[in-house]
Amino acid sequence: MNLDFSQIVPYIPFILEGIWVTLQFVLVSILLGFLLGTVLALFKISNIKLLKWPADFYTSIFRGTPLILQLAIIYLATPQLTGYDISPFLSAVLAFGLNSSAYVSEIIRAGISAVDRGQTEAAIALGIPYRPMMKDIILPQAMKNILPALMNEFITLTKESALVSTIGYVDLMRRAQITSSRLYSYFEPLMFVAIIYWLMVMVLTLLGGWVERRMKESD
């Protein structure tokens, strides 16, 4: 075994650039996933079957198939079907955003339905209309269940983001692989990005812990 971490030094700037490349699409995906997930969750808790059913079906599809397959379908099949030459970035954002929205919608739906039914009844009995009831009474209570689970979803998404290396998006993971092939050495570059992923996840975890403590305080 001949480990030599100094040989990756020339590649460090190249790899570090990957942090921003990864974060860029992770942040956009999280945003897309959150917005779409919120809308889906509202569909799911509505009494209107025409909204509820498609939202449930959507969730079932995106949770029931591998993410790497969804990514491949969007990246490879879109040009075949539409002739539009979709970029790796857009494919990645779509696959991760759409996939994440399915999970986020479940997190929000579960968070809302975990709020005691009596809260809704008390609000209805007071003559409070649906929207202010959701906004001021139900959602603030649901947030306590939703936020910790959302942080977990963001952490998962950040880690799973490495899958985009399979469609030629030059993220952190891909940069480690490129460096490996130049150096004919695997351990050092892979270890280096492993630490970077771990640090990113730690930041999110600490942030999550802080949010959770803030929520507890407001009890």
């Binding site: 209805i124 009995a125 007071l126 003559g127 409070i128 209309p129």
Partner: peptide, 8 residues
């Protein structure tokens, strides 16, 4: 909803 305002 309006009518419920008057029923505690």
């Amino acid at each position: 909803t309006k009518a419920r305002e008057k029923i505690g």
